[in-house]
């Protein structure tokens, strides 16, 4: 649990941190935001776990597609490529 002491300017609550996790992971924060965010993570196991879960979710999504090119479409495209080559 974060201690909302107010000592370091704006302290994020856990509820705010979960909304900002992708901004943080995408490097889209100001230095000030990042400092406050990381300070919160240092004190809050729940939020550092949450940020790790978002990072893990993104990593797990990589390549999870079953969309392979259908054979007939591939054949049609190759025909189109040959036509294009002849022109």
């Amino acid at each position: 649990m974060a201690d909302p002491s107010g000592e370091f300017g704006h302290d994020y609550t856990c509820r705010e941190v979960v909304e900002l996790a992708s901004d943080y992971l995408e490097g889209a924060m100001t230095v000030r935001q990042m400092t406050a965010f990381e300070l919160h993570l240092n004190f809050c196991d729940g939020c550092s776990t949450f940020v790790d879960q978002i990072r893990t979710t993104a990593a797990m999504a990589l390549g999870v597609t079953e969309d392979r090119i259908p054979d007939d479409l591939k054949a049609k495209l190759l025909d189109a490529f040959r036509d294009w080559k002849r022109e």
Partner: peptide
């Protein structure tokens, strides 16, 4: 605004 219960650590 704090967690009631922390999420489970997947690590």
């Amino acid at each position: 605004g704090g967690w009631r219960a922390f999420p489970t650590d997947w690590r």
